[in-house]
Simulated scan of single mutants.
Amino acid sequence: MAERIERLPQLLDRKLYKTGQTRGADNDEIFQNRVSRNCTVLIPFEHYSAVIKSMGSEVFENGFIVLVKPEHYFTDNGSALAAAGLTLGVDAVVFYQTRQQWRTFNPEHFKWTPASSRKAPLNGQYVARVAGTTTGDGAGERINHGYTTTDLKGAGVRIYEYASKANIDAARLQLETLFWRCHDSAEVVIANGMTAKGAETRRVAIFAAAEAGKLLDNTKLRNSRLVDAEHSTICPLCLERISAADFFSRVAQAAGRETHDLTVTTVSLFHIKELRVGEFGHRPYNLGWGHHHCNVVVKDSGIDATLMWMSQVISRNVSAGYLLKEKSGASGS
């Protein structure tokens, strides 16, 4: 009988699980809130041809819905949609986002109904997410039509967040191996509730599974800025070694500005190549663990562009004498 694998400490286990989920979305957005990355994909019509050409349509495990702007649809009464092989109410909807769109192309004039299914047929021709305003020509109440019920909130996920179930699982497995590559991983999980034997048994099992899945290529890992020359996990931006303790510590907050329900930890999921429409960004060898603040700095710019910007910032500060002044002040001169 195979030896039972002990579970990770709850906070770490949850952190790994959430890597397979999309980011949050509130009720005024068309997107689903923190669901699996392989849910129904929402594709803006202006990106549809490029997405299908680069990714294909069959790759989306739970299908897709194309979002068409009203002004685009009514320019030719849907001819461009049909030419792309799409059908309103089957795999496409008209998406209203502004009050001007709503007033000019009011769906009620066409006796349209809000879509209410993520699978074909969509049971409607349009979706609306128009913000409520109190001033100007666009004043009016919020208009939220389609995918608003408790059990059907949000039409789908952002195209650039999509990942297949296989990629979600493989990425999560590789991310756990990166945790175990932290120099203090065993010490930290034991301090957070695991037994020493359970920690070692799990580490060995995880590495064996990763090896079988071809997820332990150290050359690829290093070239992707995920580990250093000694195969220890590093932050992809600053290249500092990650401590396992950082997975359990909350981000420090400024005195007097604390948020008591803060759940952000010092280390967070880090995409090496930034997420882009038309690319599968959530995949093995493109995901690592990085410092929260480094992640915030990189954001959607990408590591290379961020490093170039940082280099320019430092160069200007050195030229202006600020860094030199700081250095001389620290030395007491």
Rank of each mutant, 00 (worst) to 15 (best):
T87N: 08
T19E: 10
S79T: 13
P107F: 13
V68P: 03
V59D: 11
P114K: 05
L12N: 03
Q32H: 08
L88D: 06
G56P: 08
G56N: 06
V68F: 06
R103E: 15
Q32F: 04
T113S: 11
N27V: 10
R37G: 13
A83M: 06
T133I: 00
A25W: 09
D28W: 11
F31D: 00
A115T: 06
F105E: 12
I65D: 01
V93G: 01
W112E: 01
H47K: 11
T75Q: 15
E108S: 09
M55L: 15
Q100E: 14
L86E: 04
T98K: 15
L88F: 09
K53L: 10
I52S: 13
G136W: 01
L67G: 04
I30T: 13
D26E: 02
T98L: 10
G89C: 04
K119F: 04
F60G: 03
G124D: 01
Y73F: 15
I65K: 04
N106Q: 07
L16V: 07
N123Y: 10
N123C: 12
P44F: 00
S117D: 07
N106T: 06
I65E: 02
A50P: 00
F45S: 09
E71Y: 15
F64V: 11
Q125N: 07
T133N: 10
F60V: 05
N77G: 02
L42Y: 11
